[in-house]
C-alpha cells in the first residue's frame, strides 16, 4: 500500500503544483540514476536514461493511479529504457560464445585476491555486463538494489514464479562467469541469449 504522504505528493503533482514534481524527483533521482548505471555502466547514459524516465513520468502522471506504487512504475520505466538501449546496442550482433564463456585471462583471479573496493566494483560490473538484459535486470534489482521478489515482479511485469526463475538463473550465470567457467549460449523466446551452464 502506497505511503499516504507520497499519495499526497503525487496528487499535488497531478494538480500541477510546481514544487511537488521537483520534490518527487529529489526523492527518487538517486535510486533511478543508480539503477540505470547498474544496467548500463556509463555515467552519461545513466543521466540520459534518468532524464528520459522522469520526462515520461511527467507526461503520463495524470493517468497514474495513486493506489499503485509509484516507485515500481518509475523503476519499470527506467529498466525498460535500459533494456531497450542494451538490445539496440547488441542488435544484429550474434552472441559470441567465447565472449560469454568466461572472464578474460587477466580477470580470472580469485575474488579474495582483490585488494581495493574500486577494483572489486569494476570486476563485479564487468561480470554483470555479460548477462543478458532481463537476467541482469532481475539480479540487479534483487542483489544490488535490494528489492523483494514481489517488487521485482511489479517492476519487470512478470509473475513471482518467473522472477524467482530468472533470479536463480541469473545468480548461477553470474557465478559461472565470475569463476571463469565456460557457459553455452541458447536463445529464449524473447530473443535474448540465455546462457546455460
Amino acid at each position: 500500500m502506497p505511503d499516504p504522504a507520497e499519495v499526497d505528493l503525487i496528487q499535488r503533482c497531478q494538480k500541477g503544483h510546481e514544487g511537488a514534481f521537483r520534490e518527487l524527483m529529489e526523492r527518487y533521482q538517486r535510486r533511478t540514476y543508480w539503477i540505470a548505471h547498474n544496467m548500463l555502466n556509463n555515467y552519461d547514459l545513466a543521466q540520459d536514461i534518468s532524464q528520459e524516465a522522469f520526462i515520461r513520468v511527467f507526461r503520463n502522471l495524470r493517468n497514474f493511479d495513486v493506489k499503485k506504487n509509484f516507485y515500481t512504475w518509475l523503476y519499470q520505466i527506467v529498466v525498460n529504457l535500459c533494456i531497450d538501449h542494451l538490445r539496440k546496442m547488441s542488435h544484429g550482433r550474434t552472441v559470441d560464445l567465447d565472449e560469454v564463456g568466461g572472464l578474460p585471462d587477466d580477470e580470472k583471479r580469485n575474488p579474495h585476491e582483490e585488494s581495493g573496493r574500486a577494483e572489486l566494483r569494476g570486476r563485479v560490473q564487468k561480470t554483470l555486463d555479460r548477462l543478458p538484459p532481463k537476467y541482469k535486470a532481475v539480479i540487479m534489482l534483487r542483489d544490488i538494489q535490494g528489492f523483494s521478489c514481489e517488487e521485482i515482479s511489479e517492476i519487470v511485469g512478470c509473475t513471482n514464479a518467473t522472477t524467482r526463475w530468472r533470479l536463480h538463473r541469473a545468480r548461477k550465470l553470474f557465478k559461472a562467469l565470475w569463476t571463469g567457467k565456460r557457459v553455452e549460449a541458447a536463445r529464449d523466446d524473447d530473443g535474448d541469449a540465455d546462457l546455460l551452464q
Binding site: 529529489e26 540514476y33 555515467y43 543521466q47 532524464q51 535490494g146 545468480r171
Partner: peptide
C-alpha cells in the same frame, strides 16, 4: 557474490549530475 554485487548499489557520481537531470527535466 551477493555481498560483492551489493557494492554496486551506490557510489560517487560526476559533480552536478542530479542538478543537470533536474534542469533537463
Amino acid at each position: 557474490l551477493r555481498a560483492a554485487l551489493a557494492e554496486l548499489r551506490e557510489g560517487a557520481v560526476p559533480s552536478r549530475t542530479f542538478e543537470r537531470i533536474r534542469g533537463q527535466v
